[in-house]
Design a protein around this nucleic acid. Structure first.
Lengths: 173, 173
DNA sequence: AAACATACCATCCGAAACGGACTGTTAGAG
DNA sequence: CTCTAACAGTCCGTTTCGGATGGTATGTTT
């Protein structure tokens, strides 16, 4: 008797991860997200407790409680969930992406480009290093989804670092 | 007797635009945003009616109602507002940016790269063209904030178009 | 073995943002 | 004078946010 609910990007992240890893507690999901997809889709961890429960009510995942100790909830994807995931993957609507960069906002409104750059370079170099470490850890064959997503992320970071390095060259105000 | 309120990015966008243009109605703000900063910071237009009112209550802007016809509300930034804006501009904390790209998400979770690319190329080529048109309209001197922000946006788009073009070359699944 | 420290794990909830449906207004075309 | 398209603003139920808080397991010290 599944309710009809609307599947959001968050829903698909949960379904996707459950499909990849078979089974997970909310806490597992939290760690999976921050180690992977969280790089290009942030969400508060509390969502990873609410969303699976919501999906369970609608029959996209099953919920089991551990009987021992901590009695954590363990989720698994159902056939219904798997089907929904695949459907989502096959629909290729050109949904717009969202970029929200406070630094860009400050730059736009006239913050000093040199000083701003100093602060940004550090952040983005770190991110880039992180990506490159991930990539070395798993050179992949350049064909799997996670690898490709990481590839585009890496290129964006490189471009960004380069941009801020240029700004840093300028004389401060 | 200004209330203490927390200034969000939306607040600073409103303050920034009012500082640039002197005076605006919410509708003006709406158009300004979509022609400029909206490219890298989306927000629903309803916020541009709520937020100035909130800022007015706290003394960051003044609110005047037109006496004639439509009786629109006109906002102006106050000294307090200007000070808050400048303070924000000068604080260079490395706040994290947020990127949310549904296409990247689908790629990550295994959507067919070729097919996905076909859909993405069109979108991003269009965006790129838009940026390049803006740039031709105002070649600037490469130093003002809005121009720089546009520059980074353009580079990201170029990189993105290039990436999806590569994916499109691959054989479909 | 009691006390303490530190991860680990989960929930809650007020505040903010969202976004779309809806209404009203003005100017110009026919 | 009427119609229509663009202009302008409001409302409000739903969702999301994000941080404060509080419990539980494990290991460590005395």
């Amino acid at each position: 008797m599944p309710d009809e609910i609307e599947l959001t990007p968050t829903s698909h992240i949960v379904l996707g991860l459950l499909s990849m890893f078979g089974e997970a507690t909310p806490y597992d999901l939290k760690r999976m997200v921050s180690a992977s997809v969280g790089q290009f889709w942030t969400l508060p961890h509390s969502q990873l407790y609410d969303e699976p429960a919501r999906l369970a009510r609608a029959g996209y995942v099953t919920e089991d409680r551990e009987t021992d100790g901590r009695r954590r909830k363990r989720y698994r994807i159902t056939d219904r969930g798997q089907a929904a995931l695949e459907k989502w993957l096959s629909v290729l609507t050109p949904e717009p992406y969202v970029l929200r960069d406070p630094a860009l906002l400050k730059l736009f409104f006239g913050a000093d480009a040199h000083d701003l750059a100093e602060a940004q370079i550090e952040t983005h170099r770190q991110k880039l290093a992180e990506y490159e470490a991930l990539r070395e850890a798993d050179p992949g064959d350049g064909r799997r989804g996670p690898w490709l997503a990481l590839e585009l992320g890496t290129r964006h970071e490189r471009e960004t670092v380069h941009f801020w390095e240029e700004q840093a060259q300028r004389a401060p105000a």
